[in-house]
Design a protein around this nucleic acid. Structure first.
Lengths: 136, 136
DNA sequence: GTGTTTGCAAAGTGTTTGCAATTTA
DNA sequence: TAAATTGCAAACACTTTGCAAACAC
């Protein structure tokens, strides 16, 4: 049973990446970074924040998700055009995606294996590999 | 040296999937489906059509790309939010993507190997696997 | 106090749609 | 001529931005 961590943990995470722990940022950090790994869209997180009585604008949610991503606290996952997903699991892993529900979930790292990556074209290097296993 | 195929080939491809070979569709089919495999966005294809003196609206380019995709003549590839790529190579394969230039290219099928796919979650099946190798 | 952050509303981007006019079979 | 297709402009969904007010240190 995961305990709710004290408020200060979210604040410490923010401070550690030089982001001021404002009311909005701290609340979003608590929703996102405490507890289990999560996959959210901006709209989802905004709705959730409002539901939890956190007053924050959608614009700030977008800005915050990008700031967290730039700071390395989260990563962005591209699965559909026109909608951005953000993932609080920043370890190396891949995803399942259910188009009909929009649900994104992690694939356990050891249950997928890529053998033999191709050589990058002349003058280029591989930055990273994204694998999306689409479910039906 | 690939020859430019006669006009009739594009028309035959369209007829074979029950799409009327209108002036616009035929012209787009010739640009897309004759010659080498291609990766295009709607905007790119529209610009290219105009440059080739094919009068066609952007809306029709979008509609046509979707019709071709539904008909199985092309497929859509998701690499970036907010921009759709369409691929004329419908065989099973994966992609390189260069974020800085927006260039998408095919990975030779035999140069990437996926061993051990994960089990789909309860009640689900794997539809397909998309692999994007991001280059820098 | 000073620089940062917020929220609003406006602007932006890529895409889709309603519908009258046109084209195809 | 009946049905499909087109093009325009408006609508759309999602995201970003400009800027004045509020906030953190």
């Amino acid at each position: 049973m995961a305990k709710i961590r004290p408020y200060t943990h979210a604040i410490d995470r923010l401070k550690s990446v030089q982001l001021r722990p404002t009311r909005q940022r701290t609340a979003l950090a608590r929703l996102l970074l405490e507890g289990a790994d999560r996959h959210v869209t901006a709209e989802q997180l905004h709705a959730e924040a409002l539901g939890a009585n956190v007053k924050v604008s959608l614009a700030t949610v977008y800005n915050t998700l990008h700031q967290f991503t730039e700071a390395g606290l989260m990563r962005e996952v591209v699965v559909e055009t026109g909608r951005s997903y953000f993932d609080t699991n920043i370890s190396d892993h891949h995803h399942f995606f259910e188009k009909d529900t929009g649900a994104l979930s992690d694939i356990p790292l050891d249950s997928i294996k890529v053998l033999a990556l191709p050589d990058a074209p002349e003058g280029r290097e591989i930055d990273h590999v994204d694998i999306i296993v689409h479910l039906k």
